[in-house]
Design a protein around this nucleic acid. Structure first.
Lengths: 206, 206
DNA sequence: GGTTACCTACTGAACACTCAGTAGGAACGT
DNA sequence: ACGTTCCTACTGAGTGTTCAGTAGGTAACC
């Protein structure tokens, strides 16, 4: 019995892995532009250089492809990229502002996520809604924990509901993503910088 | 030639007007839940008590129906509900916080708008994208003007880009809308109240 | 008798997904 | 060195369904 903790499901051949990567990237790009329902498998397949049936060989359903694309995005996420041990406290805000500045490195991933969240926001009962909701709740908890730490360190006012503040911050991030999707020339970096200054001013004790 | 400034296109009979209102309401509800591409005309028509062809009699195309639904939402909007003359200055923030508290009165309109913005955010070149972008830009300008007024009145720090701040605020609103769509039990009122306090703290001079 | 408010029945296109088959290569025994 | 076997990575030609929109008619009401 070999090491069967993670591998196995990965990639039988390098060719297949490369093709899957192309399909996922094409999917992210089209979904960001046209939404998941506005994107056809044929469109994605053509952009990745295979037939529609070729796509289905790699990803059995459209949903499976979307999940694979989200898996990739989740791996590359930067907003809340810290482990349980290394709670950053108030520096969480700096991490977020920096992450916003890095959107332009992966515009398709950011756009896909934004559109998928909106499309599935009210789709209660579906697997996609469950996934996105869970991820969101985890983000709230993680950010709230950082704020609690900041309160304990004396960096943040005591009279402040950390969970509600975390929700406010995540709402700002998501809304800014949407605005940036509408107009990629929007100065998100500058806005994020001003936001950072204002937040720290509002949260400072006394 | 009668008064032809606004009427004419409105409603030949009361029955027709009532049906149109039902169709628009049904459209808003379904679009909020399933997105515009995930909603069929048949679905909307059935919910409004007519056949699909009956719907098409009132609204010649799907897009026309969506625009009509947005028209209604735009009329009822509360965020930036002040005319050019009565610039509210810093009180604009209070108006916004109050408007957020009123979402639950028209959940379908709020949800429809949120989903439509995300679906069409990257759809450059379409009529829907143009409409939503224009509306957004107007919102930024209006809110920025209120912030400038607040600066002149001495209520807000001088070193603050009012336009960028306006974009930040609108991003927060939109992101909160999406989060509320995902989970209607989210305490948006409380979050908005805390946001209001924090914003005023951050914007106060000195 | 004309306008308004519908209806049933249909069309053509697009869609996700299926199916049967094939080229190419690695793994094995002989 | 060779043939057999098996697997991956596809293709092209469908399937049934759903969709927005059309055609043409009907009935009520002013």
């Amino acid at each position: 019995m070999p090491t069967q903790l993670e591998p196995e499901l990965k990639s039988p051949t390098a060719k297949g892995a490369a093709r899957r990567a192309m399909l996922v990237e094409a999917a992210a790009t089209f979904v960001a532009r046209n939404g998941s329902r506005g994107t056809s498998l044929a469109q994605i397949a053509k952009a990745a250089g295979v037939s529609q049936a070729g796509l289905i060989y790699h990803f059995h359903t459209k949903e499976e492809l979307l999940h694979a694309a989200l898996d990739l995005r989740d791996e590359a996420e930067e907003y809340l990229a810290w482990s349980e041990e290394e709670n950053p406290g108030l520096a969480a805000l700096d991490i977020i502002a920096t992450a916003i500045g890095n959107w332009s490195k992966q515009p398709s991933h950011v756009g896909m996520h934004t559109v998928l969240v909106a499309e599935n926001a009210a789709q209660r009962g579906t697997a996609m809604h469950a996934r996105l909701t869970t991820k969101y709740q985890a983000g709230v908890s993680q950010l709230a924990a950082a704020l609690v730490q900041a309160q304990q360190a004396g960096d943040v006012r005591q009279d402040l509901d950390p969970r509600h503040k975390a929700m406010e911050i995540l709402a700002f991030i998501h809304g800014l993503e949407t605005a940036w999707l509408m107009d990629p020339k929007m100065p998100v970096k500058v806005i994020a910088k001003q936001w950072l200054v204002d937040q720290k001013a509002a949260l400072r004790p006394q």
